[in-house]
Amino acid sequence: MNASASGMSPRGSISIREVTKIYDPDGAKVLAVDNCSMEIEAGEFCVLVGPSGCGKTTLLNAIAGFHGITTGEIWLDGELLCSGARTPSPGADRIVVFQNGALFPWFTVLENVTFGPVVQGGMSKAEAHDRARTMLGQMGLMGIENNYPSEISSGMRRRVEIARAMMNDPRVLLLDEPFRAMDALTKTVVHQFLLDVYDKSRKTVFFITHDLEEAIFLGSKVYIMTTRPARIKKVLDVDIPRPRDFRALSSATYLRLKQECIEAVHEEALKAFKAGEREMA
């Protein structure tokens, strides 16, 4: 939340060009993503919604570098991340926050948050601890640095995980349904938290969700995807001013966008249903 405030050139633009991903090309040939293109600007809060199993995670994992793609190209700030011929590798410039959380249970909050800087070797342990304490303080997460993840609430864990990602000053924050299993109250807290982090850092955020309200409340752009194989069906520009808080949820713009979103998604859900696919949440 600190470094980028002084960062000059915007970083974190992602260009997804005609990406196709086929799982198990020699066997079952599951076409997960089909000729999908997206241009995500640096500093954009991009939200992907789409039916279950349509290929959202597949796309995110390719950006994260966990697996390759079959054809097409993904670029990050003008550098080729991966293409059909180039297998990507994960890196601290694109940090993933996972659906079920991936804080290391054997490390304390502080050890988790400093994991990135310590293994990358750019910082001494003491320095990393100092910075982590400062950041946890700024994020309202003080007093828990010596607790283990199992000792803090799920909402707290998710915020710590976002803090762990931000410690690396990544170019992109990749979030795969990070708040899915949370109750409504906890969700409002983590939403506000993520919005605050975003407002202060203006990182590029790539956020996957099933929850349309969450999508519009958080995102600058909402990409609605088709049923599998994934393609972009519709892009909504969310012109609700920032900083946002819960009051945005009752604005006319919000309600209009939600209506638009529901219609588009409903169409896809019906298609998915007819195709015998699993229902979307």
Binding site: A64, G65, F66, S89, P90, G91, A92, R94, I95, V96, F98, N100, A102, F104, F115, G116, V119, Q120, R164, N168
Partner: peptide, 15 residues
């Protein structure tokens, strides 16, 4: 050990 911890570690730059 859950695969997700390996992914998280790689993503955070672990060697």
């Amino acid at each position: 050990i859950d695969e997700v911890y390996f992914r998280a570690a790689h993503s955070l730059g672990a060697k």
